[in-house]
């Protein structure tokens, strides 16, 4: 029954995290901070419900590979929006984008 007990604890932990996340986002107005809880909860699901550590080595390779390419996709894709700044181009008040 230790396996079931662990699953129960993880489930309770996930619900508590959800409560914290919803409170941060809805009550305190820290919506962007609440974003962090999502990946944390997803990681708990992957480790305990999906048992990513179980099975042959290929399981961990494929899981890590998916995560790696997701990082590349989002990391490179978001590079331009987060580094682009709008600067004033002159006294006429015209603006220009600077990469």
């Amino acid at each position: 029954m230790t396996g079931i007990r662990r699953l129960v604890l993880v489930w309770i932990g996930l619900l508590l995290l959800l409560a914290v996340q919803a409170t941060l986002g809805r009550v305190l107005g820290w919506g962007n901070v609440a974003l962090v809880a999502g990946p944390v909860m997803a990681a708990l699901v992957a480790v305990f419900f999906m048992e990513v550590g179980r099975g042959p080595g290929a399981v961990r390779v494929f899981a890590a590979w998916g995560l790696f390419w997701l990082m590349v996709l989002i990391g490179l894709g978001i590079l331009d929006p987060v580094t682009r700044r709008t600067v004033s181009a002159g006294p006429a008040g015209q603006t220009a984008s600077s990469p």
Partner: peptide
């Protein structure tokens, strides 16, 4: 079980993006 939990995981990412992010603004 892997498939079902994956669907759950994707919702855990979507949930704050849809309902929480930017509520501070």
């Amino acid at each position: 079980g892997l498939y079902w939990s994956f669907v759950d995981m994707m919702w855990l990412i979507l949930y704050p993006l849809i309902y929480l992010a930017g509520r501070s603004a």
